[in-house]
Simulated scan of single mutants.
Amino acid sequence: MTQAREIRLASRPEGWPTAENFEFATVELPSLNDGEVLVKNEFISVDPYMRGRMNDTKSYVAPYEIGGRIEGGAVGRVVESRADSLPEGTLVLHYQGWADYAQGPAQGFTALAELPGGAPSSLYLGMLGMTAMTAYTGLTRVAKMKEGDVVFVSGAAGAVGTAVGQIARLLGASRVIGSAGSEAKVNLLTEKYGYDAAINYKQEPIRQALPQAAPQGVDVYFDNVGGDHLEAALDVMNRGGRLALCGAISVYNEKGQPAAGPDNMANLIKQGLMMQGFTLGDYVQDVAGEFREKMTGWFAEGKIAYDETVYEGLDSTIDAFIDMMKGANTGKMVVKL
Rank of each mutant, 00 (worst) to 15 (best):
E147C: 06
Y221A: 07
G68N: 07
A74I: 08
N187R: 11
L189Y: 04
E14V: 08
E14Q: 14
E191P: 05
N200K: 08
T2F: 02
A209L: 03
V251A: 13
K40Y: 04
E312Y: 03
G240I: 02
E254V: 10
M325E: 15
R12L: 10
E6N: 09
E231F: 04
E290T: 14
I70D: 13
A214N: 00
G138Q: 01
T134M: 03
G226T: 08
G240Q: 03
T26Q: 13
L112C: 05
V27S: 06
D47C: 11
Y64C: 08
G15T: 03
G227S: 12
A197L: 01
T110Y: 09
F222N: 05
G297I: 04
L245H: 03
I177M: 07
S59M: 15
V176K: 04
L115C: 09
S316Q: 13
Y252F: 14
P87R: 03
A111M: 06
L337D: 06
L9M: 03
Q103M: 14
R207K: 12
M333H: 10
E36K: 05
L32G: 11
G76R: 00
I249L: 05
T140L: 04
T296N: 09
G76D: 00
R77D: 09
L38A: 11
D228P: 05
P120M: 12
T330P: 02
G226L: 07
G241L: 03
T190E: 14
Y136R: 07
P258Y: 02
L273D: 14
L245S: 09
F24W: 10
E231Y: 02
Q203G: 10
L268S: 10
V251E: 15
V334N: 08
T26M: 08
G178I: 13
E312C: 07
Y101K: 12
P105V: 05
Y49F: 11
T2Q: 05
M295K: 04
E183W: 02
A19H: 06
A320I: 00
W298K: 14
T90N: 13
Y306I: 04
G240A: 00
Y306G: 12
E36P: 07
D100N: 14
I206N: 04
L314P: 08
T309Y: 02
M133C: 12
Y101L: 13
G302Q: 09
L9T: 01
A99L: 00
Q271I: 06
G52N: 11
G104D: 13
Q216H: 06
A10D: 15
G313C: 00
R8W: 01
N224L: 00
K294G: 04
L32K: 10
R292S: 13
D219F: 03
Q203R: 14
G247E: 14
I199K: 11
Y60T: 12
G327K: 01
R53N: 09
R53V: 12
Y252P: 04
E80K: 14
D196E: 06
Y195C: 07
I249D: 04
K326G: 08
Y193N: 12
K58V: 15
S45Q: 08
I304A: 00
G158Y: 00
D56N: 14
H229M: 02
